[in-house]
Design a protein around this nucleic acid. Sequence first.
DNA 1: CCACCAAGCGATGAAATGCTCAATCGCTTC
DNA 2: GAAGCGATTGAGCATTTCATCGCTTGGTGG
Lengths: 318, 318
Amino acid sequence: MTRPETDPTPQDDAARAGWLYYVAGMTQDQIATELGVSRQRAQRLVSKAISDGLIQVRLNHRIGACMDLEQALQHRFGLQRCRVAPGLGAGADPARAIAVAAASELERYLRQPDPLTIAFGTGRALRAMVEQFNPSGPCPHKIVSLLGNIAPDGSATLYDVISRIAERLNATYYPMPVPVISDTAQEREFFMHLRPVRNVYELARKADVTFVGVGQMGADAPLALDGFVSAEVMAELQEQGATGEIASWVYDARGRYIDSPRNALVGGVRVEPGQSQPVFGVAAGASKIKAIYAAIQGRIINCLVTDEPTAKALLAQD
Amino acid sequence: MTRPETDPTPQDDAARAGWLYYVAGMTQDQIATELGVSRQRAQRLVSKAISDGLIQVRLNHRIGACMDLEQALQHRFGLQRCRVAPGLGAGADPARAIAVAAASELERYLRQPDPLTIAFGTGRALRAMVEQFNPSGPCPHKIVSLLGNIAPDGSATLYDVISRIAERLNATYYPMPVPVISDTAQEREFFMHLRPVRNVYELARKADVTFVGVGQMGADAPLALDGFVSAEVMAELQEQGATGEIASWVYDARGRYIDSPRNALVGGVRVEPGQSQPVFGVAAGASKIKAIYAAIQGRIINCLVTDEPTAKALLAQD
DNA sequence: CCACCAAGCGATGAAATGCTCAATCGCTTC
DNA sequence: GAAGCGATTGAGCATTTCATCGCTTGGTGG
């Protein structure tokens, strides 16, 4: 044999210490004894092994991939928070997938002892969220709606979220008794000047935390499906660059609200870009990718709950 | 266990906690706050993540001493490949130590784009290996078992490796539906002449790469522990010079398969000596030294994954 | 040859972790 | 409906780990 032993090498010790610590599960002074060094030195070796990247930890679970995506999204887009739920596979409703994750985000705020104002938009995703969340304990918070609850035909709008939440929480809640979209500017003005409306409006505008769905444009747009926008107006909006919609306010591919007579008729609060309070976008699905991307770019939302395929697609946007 | 329903999260929480702890480097009460649970619960989740094997640790550094041993073993015994993992210290299961190294060898082949046939034996070491490997990307390979999967009591054998691998890879796999050891030569003949069995047999025999464990003889022999061989037969075999066993085929101290009625009843493929395709022996531990040494001498295996103490002991054999 | 500087070392105290135990909760059974 | 049983929980405590500090050592330049 050439050499009976290679020198007690520099970084080898660190690797060995890290191995004994993480794989063998030894305690640091066991390692110290094993290697014949002091405890402190063993501790330094272990920490060196980590900082030098000698030790790689991975999570052998689907959730692991999701959490990697969360970190990537947070970092890439500067989001305050991000949750990625495992995908349900093709064919399933993506809203189901993200409902639980969204609910747990909501619960984080509901658990707070100090009274908060929590504002909600509407939509399938939020509706799925409220089906999933579990009220626990008393609720000192105010539940506020971001948008009107009067549909064009006078019915309560589909996917009304807020009353469901408030009902299950037993909390005071503030719906917004205005048309989702008024017929005329005068009508909108009239409603928006009513004192109770102004009150709710102010509450919602200053909410401590906001949850919204994200709507895409096109024939399958929620706005179109629910009859708020005719096919002609939709086409017109898209010509103007409309890419998505949050609380019925339409924005372009860079997340800037577009300057359209249509937007001027929307009742309720427009979520302003660049807020410091958390604004959660709760949305997933292939058709929504561009709309979500734009909303993030424009800083309309600063927190995101989505599913795995959507997260991957967002990261793949250039 | 596949879970089509993602709604309630049983072990997902453990995964999440483990990720936050090991990957994000959070402290346990930060995790507790994050997940909205008590500090103790967070600690329990993290420890569950470890005990469930959700956390995978890899050493990204070849320790010099181990590399020296690898080279020495390769040179001395003319091995195609050799990997030596650092020892875990006395008392620990050596299979754990070599699992990661073995997994990374396996992954080298799985990454190959062209379809390969990969054959597997059974045993604790291989089982530990499959727990550690990480499937990545699609798998065009064929996963074949070297030996039968029918135990004497009719149950699926302990330490079944192949189904686990295939399950995680989503690859087509070929178990061998014959008894590990038949009661009579006639029974063996019957099984081995079945067409599907012949098919699997031929696949395994010509595998592009093979992974096997190495069993020792004696009271602590895997064959004895799993009830394939009674104490009397074991004693008899040892009198005939039996030193080790690969895929249930028993060989002597020089690695030559012994000519025993017992060997004639083994179902499945006998790994032939002197193959040009790689045959990996994955084994470590003081009790296995002679068996490994013999298998190498007889050229039954031509690649080795073992741990440091075992490697040293092998080199110390005369 | 000495003074100085940098790097590494061990020690101490504070924080974090993991373990045990008693109490509770939920479920089954009588 | 009550009692029993097992699993789960939270609290306290012992252990382990981590960060900061002053000291020693070894090397360098004057």
